[in-house]
Design a protein around this nucleic acid. Structure first.
Lengths: 186, 186
DNA sequence: GACTCATTGTACCGATCGGTACAATATCGA
DNA sequence: TCGATATTGTACCGATCGGTACAATGAGTC
């Protein structure tokens, strides 16, 4: 009870990478063990409910990262433009300029969505909502802000797909630049 | 040698649906058999190289559909605006207003991309290229046309992700409308 | 040192994985 | 009708799946 957790963050980050690269079905316990250096004994000790709990924890971990680095900055009431720029910077950093894929977006596509539907919906809803509110504060009408926010988050997700398909990070960078420009225009 | 193939189109369409819903790894031979009503004997008779051949055939089938219904209309030299509108209509029809996911886009995200990288890249490259050329013919500068084409295809892919995440086809419809407007503006 | 309790490796489970072998059955042209 | 070929069902293969059991080890407290 004294020890908080050794490096749960790093552990979850490693597990996340396996789910990102192989998908929920493709990420076998053996692969996760190899990637983390942990045997089944350890993995099932940390995640007694098994694979589904692992994926759930990974989603929650990613969600927490976005909450802290994207959603909170977007809620900065005084300088909405600054918060929006923070979002773009964090997004570019997180997805490594398009080298990395959005695990939550990938889970949304196939049947694994059913297992995590609530978390997936919540993640994207908060992203769009907080961005929309920042845009409203920045001077857009609420309706226009909703439209722009949905368009922006969609553009980011689509750019991740195209960047992977083309194997070209420039696709992602261009999309971020276009989105920045679209949101700055008044 | 006389029989061309009984209903290969329908067969591939059914197999495609399994890959779409479960991903490459998640689509087991048993699931494919259940969805098509064919046993292993038949499946391995039609696709002797197994699962990878099935997925390859499905990708080629989808590619052919887009070639005929999207890329060819986009190449109509006389009326580029008409070709672009055809693209939007076919896209909306194919993805069933966002109820359906893009199998090729989904494959691009995880490790199954490596198996089909060439076909995936070709599919998206042709989509963007043909759209860009149509936009150039419609009066945009080649540079602007490239930008708009990449943005449009990305917006469609992103909208498919969001529509699934939100379980709301309206997200997809709105994205298509925005894209139409963006391409019509001169 | 002794007592906890967290952590780990290993053996094992039934189920399912993708794939093969092959005999039985349709379907066809001659 | 006959022979060739296309199609199918079934039994089976070794490998791997996710998960469980449990004894051995680790580290910290008293």
């Amino acid at each position: 009870m004294r020890r908080i957790a050794p490096d749960r963050d790093q552990l979850l980050a490693m597990v996340a990478e396996v789910f990102r690269e192989h998908g929920y079905e493709g990420a076998s316990i053996a692969l996760i063990g190899a990637a983390t250096g942990l045997g089944k004994g350890s993995l099932y000790h940390f995640f007694p409910s098994g694979k589904e709990e692992m994926a759930g924890a990974v989603i929650a971990h990613i969600d927490g990262w976005f909450e802290e680095n994207v959603f909170v900055p977007l809620q900065d009431a005084s300088e909405p433009r600054v918060g929006i720029e923070r979002m773009f910077e964090a997004t570019d950093r997180y997805f490594r300029s398009g080298r990395r894929v959005c695990l939550i977006g990938a889970f949304a596509l196939d049947e694994s969505r059913d297992l995590f539907a609530k978390a997936i919906k919540s993640y994207f809803t908060r992203w769009v909502t907080h961005l929309s509110e920042a845009l409203t504060r920045a001077g857009h009408s609420p309706a226009k802000a909703d439209e722009l926010a949905e368009e922006t988050v969609g553009a980011i997700q689509g750019a991740l797909t195209l960047a992977r398909a083309f194997d070209d990070t420039a696709v992602f960078s261009r999309a971020l630049q276009r989105a920045r420009a679209a949101l700055s225009a008044n």
